[in-house]
Amino acid sequence: MSLDRRTFLKTLGVVGLSLTVGDVLASEDKKEKSIEFYGVLYDSSRCVGCQTCENMCAMANDVHAPDGKPKTGLVRKTDEGHRTVINSYNTSKGEVFIKKQCMHCNDPACVSACLTKAMYKTKEGPVIWRGEKCMGCRYCMVSCPFDIPKFEYFSSNPKIEKCTMCFDKIQTGKAPACTQDCPAQALKFGTRRELLKEAHKRIVEHPEIYVDEIYGEQVAGGTAFLYLSPVPFNELGENTSLQNKSYPELSKGFLYSVPSVFVLIPPILLGIYEATKNNKNKENDENE
């Protein structure tokens, strides 16, 4: 395959470059080369709403077992005790289920918001929370367009709760708990690239089942969780007005202006100060 040869050449190039040019370039290339984000493909046309994923998640992560069943008209939410929920929606094609959990954005708003690097995008893809760094400011919650991080408001030592894509399992080569025993095979774990390919394949092969959109491919700059659906996503309670640019882009302009202000403003102020200094004597004469 030509792709293999290209990858091979690229690797060669990277090695050569990093040996000759140095750290900066090499680390930039490494991102492209070796980091392959994991992800989960969720197919809501297959999901039967059995809540196996919810139960598996609760067991694996030691959080609360699901309270209640998905019911049309009732929107259950993830909270500090529930990292994932299945909801049921009455759509143009009858009852359709949809799973909700952290989307694990490629460029997450919560991570860029975090001033202590407690929210952290691992190189494997999962976005995790690290309690030893977090100061509980909840800026991640303000920033997350999906409203995912949840805070323990009734604790003197509160944690931020959210899906971690079972990062501990991924590190040992296992799949996230929710994907393991899905009886309808609605959840599939893999690298994001493979899953996207798979999702496109399903749409092409069964255009009668799916709408031609993968939620998560573009939204918020792309996410690790990818959704297939038989109906438009706004019928499933997803916010379809979210931007396709990543959210950290929104504050980038401001952050980029900071060094310029720091470099430009003090000398200007100093200049004005020096220029107006001479008035001092004049004013003093009048006052004294």
Partner: peptide, 16 residues
């Protein structure tokens, strides 16, 4: 929520 970590962005290795 966790004010005892307020020092993290000032000293340490947790600069976000």
């Amino acid at each position: 929520g966790r004010p005892w970590h307020v020092i993290n962005p000032i000293i340490g290795n947790s600069f976000g």
